[in-house]
Amino acid sequence: MKIETLEFGYFYHIYNRGNNSGTIFFEEKNYNYFLQLLSKYIVPIGEIYAYCLLKNHFHFLIKLKDESEISYERFCILNDK
C-alpha cells in the first residue's frame, strides 16, 4: 500500500465513508463532535474551503498552509490536551 504524502500549500479533496457504506453519524451530536475534531486538528495546519457531512460519509476541500504559516509549538500544545 502506497502512503501518499500531503504537501504544504496544495489543495486536497479528503473524503471517507463508513464500513460497507454504514452510518458514521448516528445523532446530531456526532456531527458537532466531528466538527470540533476538525477544528482542533485541521484548522492549525490548513484552511477549510468546503465540507459536507452526510450520514454515512464526509468530504472536505482543504488547502494546507505553507510551512512558514504553521506554528508547530501551538499545534503540539493543542494536541497535548
Rank of each mutant, 00 (worst) to 15 (best):
I70Y: 04
N16Y: 00
N56T: 06
G18S: 10
N16M: 02
K63W: 03
I62W: 06
K81L: 13
N56M: 10
L54Q: 08
G22I: 06
V43L: 14
N19I: 15
L54P: 03
E4I: 10
Y72T: 08
H57Q: 09
I45A: 05
C52T: 00
F8S: 15
P44S: 03
I62P: 01
H13P: 01
L37C: 11
F60G: 00
Y15E: 07
S68E: 15
I70T: 00
C76I: 14
I3V: 14
E73H: 10
Y49A: 07
F25G: 01
I48K: 06
E47V: 15
N20H: 13
E4D: 09
L54Y: 05
G18L: 04
E28S: 12
G46F: 04
F25A: 02
N79T: 04
I42M: 01
K29I: 12
K65S: 05
L37A: 09
N32Y: 09
I42Y: 06
F75P: 03
N56E: 01
D66Q: 14
Y12W: 07
E69W: 06
S68L: 15
N30Y: 08
L53G: 00
T5E: 10
Q36T: 12
K63A: 03
N16T: 01
L6P: 00
I77M: 09
Y41R: 08
E69S: 15
G9K: 08
Y12L: 07
L54H: 07
A50Y: 11
T5G: 05
N79W: 13
Y10A: 13
F58K: 04
Y31A: 01
G9E: 08
E28I: 11
G18A: 06
L61A: 03
I3A: 15
L64W: 05
F60Y: 12
K81H: 10
H13R: 05
H59C: 06
H13M: 05
I3G: 09
